[in-house]
């Protein structure tokens, strides 16, 4: 039997990711929701590790858990006038539920009909150094463009969120 991803670790992490997502959607407190998202993100980072994408795992945790969640919390705090505002009414959307169910069902059907043709995990998994080499050789131009995109977005974000001069 060829080795694949550890089933127990996968089950725990997948459960944690789904738990985080469900928690984020069901909690009434916006701040709690941000923390649930954080938990879900960390679980996904763990899944990346299982897939031997170490670099991505680290970057993912840094970006989503580190930066994005903190940013979210900042914005939540800046836009709340009172502590009680963080607790919101329960919002249920039938349309959303229908859409999500239809979508999820379809994807499941597609996966089921496809079958698990690649059940075995290929032995070789290139390491982070190989990824780095790829990024700076074959993908060098898109990589630089991506950095430019980030820079422009950063400047634009600063521009938009600045206080209006009166």
């Amino acid at each position: 039997m060829t080795e694949t991803v550890n089933g127990i670790a996968f089950a725990i992490l997948a459960g944690a990711a789904i738990l985080g997502a469900v928690g984020m959607l069901t909690t009434r407190n916006v701040i709690h929701a941000a923390f649930w998202l954080l938990e879900s993100m960390i679980a996904v980072g763990g899944l990346f590790l299982l897939l031997q994408a170490e670099y991505l795992a680290v970057v993912h945790v840094l970006v989503y858990a580190g930066a994005v969640s903190v940013l979210m919390l900042f914005v939540i705090m800046l836009t709340l006038r009172r502590r009680e505002d963080s607790v919101r009414p329960v919002e249920v959307s039938v349309a959303g539920a229908v859409m999500a169910l239809v979508f999820g069902g379809l994807v499941f059907a597609a996966i089921a009909s496809y079958g698990d043709r690649v059940a075995e995990m290929p032995e070789t998994a290139p390491d982070t150094a190989a990824l780095g080499e790829l990024l700076f050789s074959r993908w060098a131009l898109p990589f630089e463009v991506a950095s430019l995109v980030l820079l422009v977005a950063l400047v634009a974000a600063v521009w938009w969120s600045r206080e209006e001069k009166r």
Partner: peptide, 20 residues
């Protein structure tokens, strides 16, 4: 946004039904 997502879901339906 709902319309957009609904359209995506419909597209998905079409792809899956056609592919099956």
């Amino acid at each position: 946004q709902r319309y957009i997502l609904g359209a995506v879901v419909l597209l998905m339906v079409w792809i899956v039904v056609k592919g099956a």
